[in-house]
Write a protein that binds this DNA or RNA. Structure first.
Lengths: 218, 218, 218, 218
DNA sequence: AATGAATGAGCATTCATTCAT
DNA sequence: CATGAATGAATGCTCATTCAT
């Protein structure tokens, strides 16, 4: 009986960690694993149950519904992304532009290396997110602040041209999200080299905030 | 008997035919409608049938399979987007930057006002696209050339800084796609005004191609 | 438009052969062909229609139902088997035992070389045969008389030990049918050589009618 | 609520278990019943479910697939046939010819009194048997050895003329199978008395192995 | 003589979930 | 804490057949 064959998350979540929380962890890890392996569309409670060698019913002892399970998973993903971004940010404490570039690269790499995770984190239909718990939502939004902070510091250092850091963080996010999405959906023209595409996307995104000669437009 | 309760496409396709083509249209229109209402994941042949008040079998008289139906829909969407972009391009024959901005706006507006199409057009998982007919694929790709042409002309006029027009067209597309996606998925922070977000996204995207004082590294 | 790509039956049936009978023939030939190629289970009116490039409806102009079509086909098969057996019988006019052996071989070979045909001819469930037209049934039964005649002549020549030629013809038929069935169902042990099996089956079947030293009890 | 209206198998299998095995039995018994009533071709999971007044899903709690269900059924039939043959063989330990005759009679009676089993046991198309588990296949083949052993002992006693006992067991099986098949398919001429037909079939089959005066023919 | 349009019934299988234990 | 038993609803798709034209 394997039961715990996948790398475990270091319990980032707010679990009070009584004894039986182990199964909760096992479910989450297995679900994540299945998600990556078979995709969101093919994820089913039964498969999770089969994989952990418990009955489907047991999952419901720990999660109210499939949605609740997914939400927990999204949250974990957001937390991991947070950790990744944070580590990245700390590597460039005094160079906001470099930091911004690194954050962009970090986001894209997170998406590309966790494709199915990415799908549930950012592409789940709004109705499935309706019941997403507000405090988790707030935590997720915190990821954006890394971008906003870099922008703000860049502006304060006079090196970036930023009007509203919060809005700009969102548009940067949009660009990165579009980049990841097209790559994951394999919609990019085969003639275009992936790495060139990514580099260009990041470069142009950042160029949009560098002071320009023609400041005219709108 | 409702039967035709949704706005109809003005028969963009190559049909000018007999009576029985009406049902084909009805199916396509209804499918589009269901797509925006319930999303691709919840779309089923039976639901379509129920909605048009025909038997599921009847759909198969007009489309070989669910995939074929979706492909037809995607193609229609691509063709309409093409028409929109073309009309937009012609409105600014001699001002590449203005044209580029208008094309961006056009794309975003297309996405926001045809959410039915958008999901299947750009977010369908690669497996479902595998059998997408090559000639339709080629037609779809043509939409990108409007962007590439504007970039090229802007470069030739010395007003845009563009290395590879084809790659850049793709990164612009990525930005726009990300923008539309986040809006449709209702992932944007409620505190941010939609119109501001869109305008900013477009402006920054284009700024990325304006000549800058600081020569952007790599 | 091919329409008549398969070898045609030489109109053994009782058709008055007006002009439109051509389609009837085409349907029969195509059905036979499909049967051999794809098996009885996969035979459908639609497939036949597709193959002959007529509408499914058209088939119903010539055959009342799928059953009627199958019955016509069975009849044709029986007639062909009849021809085969007849030709075989005529080759041994004066040697009843040899003739019997040849008839057995002929039957088995017919079965093995027309597997799917054989299936509908002899293995169709009784309820599908209920409405089989009596005159066709009688014609089919005539095939048995070749065996009965050989038995009778063998008895008259004092070379075969036969009580009731009609019953014995049936038991011989049963043996042959069993032999063909097992071979077609691939139920024979792989260690047993097909040809040896067939030869043995025939030999033993005939030996059952040769005069024995031990007068067989009961 | 009928639920258990058919004769039950006395749990030949290796289950001596809990309560839930009852449904498994009910499914098997009902399936057998439906098989004889409607034939293999018309057997569907839904019909079984309807008949046992459970949901179709419930069947899948006990059998992985339709094939698995059929295989279980075939195996049960083979085991019962085995028991019947074994009991028969033991009744004639020292009289190989009598034993052979009794085994033939036993096989035919098994077929005629278990028509439900018969079709799936011996007439299933090879495709459906492909995945038949090898150990079950081996068990099934063991039934043939009763015939082979009787032949061998008859030969050793100098009372039967047998070349290859294994091949001959198969041809005897073929004869019996043909006999049963024609009877079950109701293909026998109504003028022929069933019992006469069966007796004759068995007698002639065995006569084929008695030493003959004319040993000549190949 | 031929068809286009349409359908009701059916298929094997999977799903998330519930409930009594 | 965990489960076995059970289900209603759903899935894409195929079938033989009918009927008005």
């Amino acid at each position: 009986m394997p039961r715990s064959r996948y790398p475990t998350m270091p319990t980032t979540s707010d679990t009070t960690d009584s004894t039986g929380e182990d199964l909760r962890r096992l479910i989450l890890d297995t679900t994540r694993h299945l998600l990556v392996q078979e995709g969101y569309q093919n994820l089913s409670m039964r498969k999770i149950a089969r994989e952990i060698e418990y009955s489907p019913t047991s999952i419901y002892l720990h999660f109210d519904s499939k949605d609740a399970l997914l939400h927990a998973l999204i949250h974990e993903g957001m937390m991991q992304l947070h950790d990744d971004l944070e580590a990245t940010a700390q590597r460039h404490p005094d160079a906001p532009i470099e930091r911004l570039r690194a954050l962009c690269r970090c986001f894209i790499e997170f998406g590309l290396s966790n494709p199915e995770y990415y799908e549930v984190m950012f592409q789940l239909r709004p109705e499935r997110m309706e019941r997403y718990p507000p405090e988790k939502y707030r935590a997720a939004r915190r990821n954006l602040t890394f971008f906003a902070e870099a922008l703000t510091q860049g502006r304060e250092a006079g090196r970036l041209h930023v009007e509203d850091a919060s809005v700009s963080a969102s548009t940067i996010w949009a660009s990165l999200h579009g980049t990841v999405s097209l790559l994951l959906a394999e919609r990019l023209d085969v003639q275009i080299d992936r790495e060139t595409f990514i580099t260009t996307a990041i470069r142009q995104t950042i160029r949009g905030y560098l002071p320009s000669t023609q400041s005219a437009t709108s």
